[in-house]
Design a protein around this nucleic acid. Structure first.
Length: 423
RNA sequence: GGAGAGAUGGCAGAGUGGUCGAAUGCGGCGGUCUUGAAAACCGUUGAUCUUCACGGGUCCGGGGGUUCGAAUCCCUCUCUCUCCGCCA
């Protein structure tokens, strides 16, 4: 959520910046500015009214003590008139404010100055590439065929147990999952991220805090009996640890990492791009989350990017880093870098990480603040990134490292898997 | 699932319907003392909206009600804890 202060002080700036996201905000922003004016006018009137009531009520108290019953009665009738007035003001103010609130959540975060112009994923800017794309023979197979041949991932069995998009990992396939999770967590904790194991179901307040609710309600699995949501990413429970928290000036940086399974309904995405591990309803991901002071958040973002890059490098996967253009940026993000690895047998780039700075947008929803050196309370900045999401890493790993029907495990991973090849 | 208890400031914990934003203790911060630290002592210490400011309003789990006046009384919802049952 953007701050009212910004909208009040520079509405034109907000409109201009949101245009980069191809979001026409003029109408909403103007309405918000109007409603905010009304809000303050009503507030002042109500405050005055209540103050008078308070004073008079106190006077009744002292009159009663002095035994001046008649005088007290006279004041009583004055107060009840004021009471009617303040009731009415309260109702109007509540209506006004809830309309204001509902418009506020419709505005996406404003992109930062680094975000390039552009409409969709084709306009994203490649900022870096690394590791060689391997030359595979003509007999190279896509990962779903490799997985079947080697009997390490069973998609059909998942269909039997649950449905499409819920694969069963078996044998070395299962061990590979566990190894990757451990490797990622080890690298993250070595870099100073505190490992946490959060619940994988969250309540409504948490869903709202990080921006999944109300807008993306349909994307989460919802346990309606208890009104809990299965997490689409560890970002939700981990960031919400700091919901309604006021940090001290010296509590920074806050760095956390968590592994969770992630659940996504992916409603409406079927067909071409969803084969094998490319898009699942349940998948494993290790996430990093940071909370920073505003002046440090972009340095932290850079640090996170090179951190994630370090992991990808270790895995030896050909990768590229993209800076997302305005049109491809998510609702809550101020800037996002995507990591993609090249899947040689499919001949396409697969997204394996997304590193974002949300600036104060999530913090404003979360009421996540800190006390600065002057003792003033300010919104903190939140950031997060995948490090990494497993399925597409596994897809690329299988495809790029296939040799004569066998899979060669990257060096850095062997201490975790305990085996060098899958055959 | 059954029964009971409870929800107050960072934490613990008081609070007869009238000046309670709230005692007290701990913690935090500042100071005195000390070579330094500890102890002791003194002071200070919630959030939020509004106003250029003075100031004013709101907040004792959420919502509603009674009353001139509610942390305190009533209704309702939510959550937490304890015991029993079941159970990894």
């Amino acid at each position: 959520m953007l701050t009212l202060k910004l909208l009040r002080e520079d509405p034109e700036y907000v409109i201009k910046k949101l245009a980069v996201k191809h979001f026409d905000a003029r109408e909403i922003v103007c309405k918000i500015v109007e409603l905010d004016k009304t809000r303050r006018a009503l507030q002042m009137e109500l405050d005055g009214c209540l103050a008078e009531q308070k004073q008079k009520a106190a006077r009744i108290g002292s009159l009663m003590k002095e035994g001046k019953k008649e005088d007290a009665e006279a004041v009583k009738s004055e107060v009840s008139a004021l009471k009617d007035k303040s009731k009415e003001l309260e109702t109007r103010s509540a209506e006004n404010n809830s309309e204001l609130e509902s418009l506020m959540v419709l505005l996406p975060n404003i992109p930062c100055d680094l975000v390039p112009e552009g409409l969709n994923s084709e306009d994203n800017v490649v900022v870096k590439t690394g590791n060689e794309i391997p030359a595979l023979g003509s007999d190279a197979l896509p990962h779903w065929e490799l997985a079947k041949k080697l009997d390490i991932i069973d998609f059909d069995l998942g269909v039997k147990l649950t449905g499409a998009g819920f694969p069963v990992y078996k044998g070395k396939g299962a061990r590979l999952q566990r190894s990757l999770i451990n490797m990622f967590l080890d690298i993250n904790t070595a870099a100073g991220y505190l490992e946490v194991e959060p619940p994988v179901m969250v309540n409504e307040a948490s869903g709202f805090g990080t921006g999944q609710l109300p807008d993306k309600e349909g994307q989460m699995y919802h346990a309606t009996l208890d009104n809990y949501y299965l997490v689409p990413t560890a970002e939700v429970p981990v960031t919400n640890i700091y919901r309604d928290v006021i940090l001290g000036n010296n509590d920074f940086p806050v760095k956390m990492t968590a592994y969770t399974p992630c659940f996504r309904r992916e409603a409406g995405s079927y067909g071409k791009d969803v084969r094998g591990l490319n898009r699942l309803h349940q998948f494993d991901k290790v996430e990093i989350v940071r909370i920073e002071k505003p002046e440090n958040s972009y340095a932290a973002l850079d640090e996170m990017i090179s951190h994630v890059e370090g992991i990808v490098k270790k895995l030896g996967l050909p990768y590229r880093i993209l800076r997302l253009c305005g049109g491809d940026l998510s609702f809550t993000s101020a800037i996002t870098y995507d990591f993609e690895v090249y899947s040689a047998a499919q001949g396409r780039w697969l997204e394996i990480s997304s590193v974002s700075n949300f600036e104060s947008y999530q913090a404003n929803r979360l009421k996540l603040r800190y006390k600065d050196a002057d003792g003033k309370i300010q919104l903190a900045h939140t950031l997060n990134g995948s490090s990494l999401a497993l399925p597409r890493v596994v897809a690329a790993l299988l495809e790029n490292n296939q040799k004569g029907g066998r899979i060669i495990i990257p060096e850095a991973l062997r201490q975790y898997t305990g085996f060098d090849v899958i055959d």
